[in-house]
């Protein structure tokens, strides 16, 4: 097979696409679905910027064949807010200055979302362990850890 008709539930909306088997998930999300919140930083799985959630789990979209996640729910950063109401992590990232250039932000947010689902009151070390695969060149990470901590505390 070189092309497969795939159904993805992207940010809650069912999308049916004809996908070439060589297409990466990041490419389909960016090119075919026009999602600007999908950021590719390295293409080798070393920076975490392209992370999206597949059935709720953080996955590197630059290193995933799109056809292998057909039928699944895909959440990009565009899907985090509920209408105009931001997710508590988004609020917290804004409030704590946890972003500068913003390129790593979608991956950081989505991986943090998963972390707080399985560990609602993480320690600073838990956050660092969970986000170790996400590089940020701007912030020095302090404020990212602060923001995730605060979002967790706010949710309790």
């Amino acid at each position: 097979m070189r092309r497969i008709v795939c159904t993805f539930v992207v940010n809650g909306v069912t999308r049916e696409l004809l996908v070439e088997t060589n297409a990466l998930l990041s490419e389909v999300l960016q090119d075919d679905l026009g999602l600007k919140g999908v950021h590719v930083g390295c293409g080798t799985g070393d920076c975490g910027a392209c992370t999206v959630l597949v059935d709720g789990l953080p996955v590197l979209s630059c290193s995933t064949l799109a056809v292998t996640v057909r039928g699944k729910e895909i959440t990009t950063v565009e899907g985090m807010a509920n209408g105009t109401k931001l997710h508590p992590l988004q609020e917290s990232f804004i409030e704590h200055g946890a972003l500068q250039c913003g390129y790593c932000t979608p991956g950081m947010l989505l991986a943090s979302k998963r972390l707080l689902e399985i560990n609602p009151s993480p320690s600073r070390q838990d956050i660092k362990d969970a986000l170790a695969g996400h590089l940020c060149r701007c912030t020095g990470y302090n404020k990212i850890v602060d923001a995730v901590m605060a979002a967790a505390e706010g949710e309790e």
């Binding site: 950063v77 804004i94 200055g97 972003l99 913003g102």
Partner: peptide, 13 residues
């Protein structure tokens, strides 16, 4: 907050 933070956390930047 940074003037453009909203766009960055929502993926619209």
């Amino acid at each position: 907050a940074a003037v453009d933070a909203y766009q960055k956390v929502t993926g619209t930047a």
